[in-house]
């Protein structure tokens, strides 16, 4: 499994796409595959605040609920409501159509705490016992 090199990643299997001070956030292929069949997503609403390392929503698969962990702190400026009605999009396109929220970042320095694609791939390999 390879991961897009234009994104940053968390140890909690969320990604961040940075465009100036706007950070778009979603889950990785690894997260989607390990969750199994996704049933529903519950995201924090527009204008609410999120913190780095804290939840911005919950995703539910057939036997598990998992908190979605934000890569950065800031206010939510956009929510992808399309995925509420079509969670299936996460099975085919987690990095584009499957984005979840966009956040106006408060502190660009927080990006230093995130992983690049090589480090994230290593983390996943370790999680799967390949390294």
């Amino acid at each position: 499994m390879s991961y897009p090199d234009d994104l940053l990643y968390t140890r909690d299997h969320t990604w961040a796409r940075v465009d100036d001070t706007t950070v778009t956030i979603g889950i990785t292929d690894f997260a989607q595959e390990s969750l199994g069949e996704i049933i529903s997503i519950d995201l924090y609403p527009l204008d609410s605040s999120v913190k780095q390392g804290e939840p911005f929503g919950i995703i539910e698969s057939d036997k598990t609920t998992a908190e979605l962990i934000s890569p950065v702190s800031g206010d939510i400026i956009s929510v992808n409501e399309d995925i509420f009605d079509d969670v299936g999009v996460l099975e085919c396109d987690v990095y584009d159509a499957g984005w979840m929220i966009a956040v106006e970042i408060q502190d660009l320095g927080e990006l230093d705490n995130l992983l690049d694609c090589d480090d994230y791939e290593e983390l996943v390999d370790q999680a799967e016992g390949r390294r």
């Binding site: 057939d62 036997k63 598990t64 609920t65």
Partner: peptide, 23 residues
């Protein structure tokens, strides 16, 4: 019965569920 749950003689004897957060 989901995959990986427990059966006895083909019938479900235990049902389980999970929550996950930050590792």
């Amino acid at each position: 019965p989901y995959r990986n749950e427990l059966l006895v003689e083909g019938a479900k004897i235990c049902g389980s569920a999970q929550a996950r957060s930050r590792g």
